[in-house]
């Protein structure tokens, strides 16, 4: 029986039978994805509602444009009452050709928006009534900008974070538990190379990362969350694998110093949590202050995250992988080398 294959199967079984690990690998990140996905779903999408009394061509044009949401009222006093209560920012009262707007003073930005929109429609109707062609024309077209809908940045971020957590904890806890239970020494007494033991464990982590990718992206793509993948999403696969190796190496380093599983777990958290927050797992880094963005560049997770965003939702091609891949490989080599220097077979 091939040692590499059997070891991989043994480690996979150990992984699948450990409910705590399964929870932190799949359910825990998914909880964040679902909760943030639902909370932030409507951010930037909500339209301003106003009260409307009466009807006419301007009101129809407003309704058709969808620029404002109109809430019809039968009489002026109840519509104005809504504004007074602070429930709605403005009330539009139509009396034939005359349009009155009563707006709340408290929210000036919203009121100005409402007034501007209504004014625009009135001007347009007036111009049309004169039968003159407009002197100035303008056309509006949507631009795909760098700021993304929440689910679009949450999914790549939480996926990278989930992969980092499971790789770091997987390698650190396995290493510490094997050293403490003398499995490492026992393996050393068998005619098998350290390489096959190590690579079989990395293989399991890599497989887990791919399953995480499929699960997280699958759930985020459900209509409730509405993730839209762009172009070459499959370029995320090499990133997942490189990220796994990098964070596995980090876990080996943590595991080399920790004496007990509890200590390894605490140390891994201390390393991973700040890194996750500063690398854009839960919010886009480009909204953070400049100095913080600079700091975040030292974290491999930041670069994995950037790469994930680029290939999953920003529609970038293979060229977007170069930088993150180079950094992850470099990180793996350096950290892996240090980890192998401080590695201990026994307590």
């Amino acid at each position: 029986m091939n040692a590499f294959k059997t070891l991989s199967v043994a480690m996979l079984k150990g992984f699948l039978r450990d409910k705590v690990t399964l929870f932190f690998t799949f359910l825990f990140p998914l909880m964040f994805l679902v909760i943030f996905g639902l909370i932030l779903r409507d951010v930037g999408a909500d339209k301003t509602r106003i009260a409307v009394v009466g009807d006419g061509p301007i009101v129809s044009a407003l309704r058709d444009s969808g620029a404002l949401e109109l809430e019809p009222y039968n009489d002026e006093s109840s519509a104005v009452q809504k504004v007074k209560d602070g429930d709605l920012p403005a009330a539009l009262i139509v009396r034939g050709q005359q349009l009155d707007v009563r707006f709340a003073q408290s929210d000036q930005v919203k009121s100005a928006t409402v007034l501007g929109i209504i004014n625009g429609f009135v001007d347009k109707a007036n111009l049309a009534a004169t039968g003159q062609p407009p002197t100035f024309t303008f056309a509006a077209e949507k631009v795909e900008d760098a700021s993304l809908k929440p689910i679009q940045y949450l999914t790549p971020g939480i996926l990278s974070w989930g992969v980092a957590v499971s790789a770091v904890f997987g390698s650190a806890l396995t290493l510490v538990s094997w050293r403490r239970k003398q499995v490492l020494r026992r393996i050393r007494l068998a005619p098998v190379s350290t390489g096959s033991v190590l690579s079989s464990r990395i293989l399991v982590s890599a497989g887990v990362a791919l399953v995480q990718g499929v699960t997280f992206i699958g759930i985020a793509s459900l209509p409730v969350f509405g993730l839209k993948l762009s172009g070459q999403w499959w370029l995320a696969i090499p990133l997942l694998l490189l990220g796994t190796v990098a964070f596995f190496a980090l876990g080996m380093l943590v595991g080399a110093f920790a004496k007990t599983e509890e200590a390894a777990s605490a140390a891994a958290n201390i390393v991973v949590l700040p890194m996750a927050f500063l690398s854009g797992t839960f919010f886009p880094v480009d909204q953070a202050p400049a100095w913080l963005q600079t700091v975040s560049k030292i974290f491999p997770l930041r670069h994995m995250n950037d790469g994930m965003l680029d290939v999953l939702v920003r529609g970038k091609g293979i060229e977007a992988l170069a930088m993150p891949a180079a950094i992850l490989v470099g990180f793996s080599l350096v950290v892996g080398f240090v980890a192998s220097r401080v590695f201990k077979w026994e307590e």
Binding site: M1, T6, G14, R17, T174, Q182, V183, R186, P191, V192
Partner: peptide
Amino acid sequence: VQLQATSFFDKLTAKEQLQTFGSLYG
């Protein structure tokens, strides 16, 4: 070799432990 501490892989059954250790020796 049996070490003084019983060293086993995590979460494997008796048979799987033996198969895994066996595989280390082919």
